[in-house]
Each structure stands twice: as structure tokens, then as C-alpha cells.
Amino acid sequence: MRPARRVERVFGTTLFWVVVIVIFVYMLFPFYWAVNSSFKTEAQLQMTPATFLPRDSEGNFAPSLINYRSVFRDGQFVRGIFNSTLVATATTALALVVGSFAAFALGKLRFRGKKPSLYMILAMTMFPQVTVLSGLYAVITTLGLTARPSMILSYMIFTLPFTTWVLTAFFKELPVEIMQSAWVDGATPFQTFYMILLPLTAPALVTTGLLAFIAAWNEFLFALTFTTIDPGARTIPVAISLFGGLVARHEPFGEIMAAAVVVTVPVVLLVLIFQRKIVAGLTAGAVKG
């Protein structure tokens, strides 16, 4: 009986690790291929058969930094990183604050018109981006906004309904007793909100923010339209779309890959660091509260 259980456990552990490794490879491989491509010159990219590492025609390992050098050749790209960070951060902050307020009401308070509000908020995000673009452009022109605020405001169309809905779902799951006991203790509803609700749903809050951040970071169509006449405000996706080859029609594929690598790695690292800090901070708050 005992050996059987042991076999079972070994089998279970092995299976678990196989699953882990499969997930790793699946998630990472296409990105690895982008990294691999980013270190290849055009001739190496076109080589048949393709190689797992950048190699020259004799088969020697020969990575090239040419793509990275061209990515950083002019300030456009670095400025793009700055702009993207700014716009995505502001978008996330705004969407989280405004969204969590609304979610508090929608998830935990009782009031008339709750369902219509929920549906209305969701309906705002149901159109494809191209369709709303020209109307949005008119709104932005009327408001007389410059490029960066225009992007932040227009990104609300897809981030705000998202944060509101996700947070509403999570708030709703929290037992009512927690809030009631806080109210009995004399806490105002608002205190209950930021001292109890927020810390308890910290993982959801962080995840929602993260997903919203990346959605804003990746947006292309609105950004292209709003930043054309203001090149100083261009974000990463726009900067990449403006990568030109040596001559017209020539597409610098290696450079695009290098740019993708350069912008992805820091995002992932930053997000990880922040995530840990924020979760820790919020959880600590909960313990204190």
C-alpha cells in the first residue's frame, strides 16, 4: 500500500513538472524566437533553414547588435518608452481610482438604477475601435486637448469598463459581515472601502491594473491618430510603426523584433517588482486595519 502511494506521489510530481515545463516552453518560445531574430542581420534572417541561434554561413555563432543599434539610433524610441510609460500609468491610475469607486457602489451598496448603470458602462466598450475613431477625434478636437491627455482620456473607453466590472465582481464576493461589523464599529462607508475592501481584494486590484496598463501600453490606432502632428508625444507602438527600412518598402524586421524585446522585458520586470510591493503594502494595510 505504501509503495503504491509513493509511486502515485512521484508520478504526480513528475506530471506536475511536465505540465510546468510545457507551459514554460509554450509561453516563452515565440518570444525566444523574437529574441533570436533580433540578433540576426537581414541575411541571417533570410537564411534557409532557419537557425535556433544567429549563425553565419559557416555555421558559427554570430549574433549581431545592428538591430539594437538602429533602434536606439535616434531619440524617437526612447521618447516613445517615456511617453508610453506616462500615458499607460496615468490611464491605469485613473481607471483604477474611478473604477474602484464605481465598483464599490455597484458591488456593495444598494441603490436604484444599479443594473442599468452596469449595462451602460459595459455598452460603452462594445464597439470596434475603428468605428468610434472619427467621432472620438471630433470630441478631442472640441475639447482642445493635446496629444497625451487625449490618449489618456480616450483609453478610458476600454480600460474603465474593464476595471469597473472586474472590481465589482470581486467586491461582491466579499462577505457582507465584514462591512457590517466595520459599520457597527463606527467606520464611515468610505473608510470601510479603503481600509477593508481594497486590502482584501488587493490581488484583484493589482491584476486589473496590470491588465489595463498593458492594454494601454499596446494601443496603436488612437495613439497614431492623436500623435501624428505632435511627434514628441508618440508612444511605443507608433514609434515602431514608423521604423523605416533603408529605402521605402524595405521593412526592418530585425529592428522590429529588437524593439519588441527591448520594450517587453522591462515591462515584465517592472510589473513583477511593483506587484510584489503593492500586494505587500495593501496586505499590510489589511492586517493593521
Binding site: L133, Y137, G244
Partner: peptide
């Protein structure tokens, strides 16, 4: 001099947006 995307479709879309708004920017 303003640079616009090398992808012809993206460039056309952008131009049309300006024309739709009758923009004097370009």
C-alpha cells in the same frame, strides 16, 4: 517634415482622418 507610417494602409487611414476633420494641420 512629419514622418508617417511606411505601411500604405496606415498612412491612408491617417490622411483620411485629417480630411474628415478638414484639418489644416498638414
Amino acid at each position: 517634415v512629419l514622418d508617417t507610417p511606411d505601411m500604405v494602409q496606415d498612412r491612408l487611414g491617417l490622411y483620411l482622418q485629417f480630411f474628415e476633420a478638414r484639418s489644416p494641420e498638414v
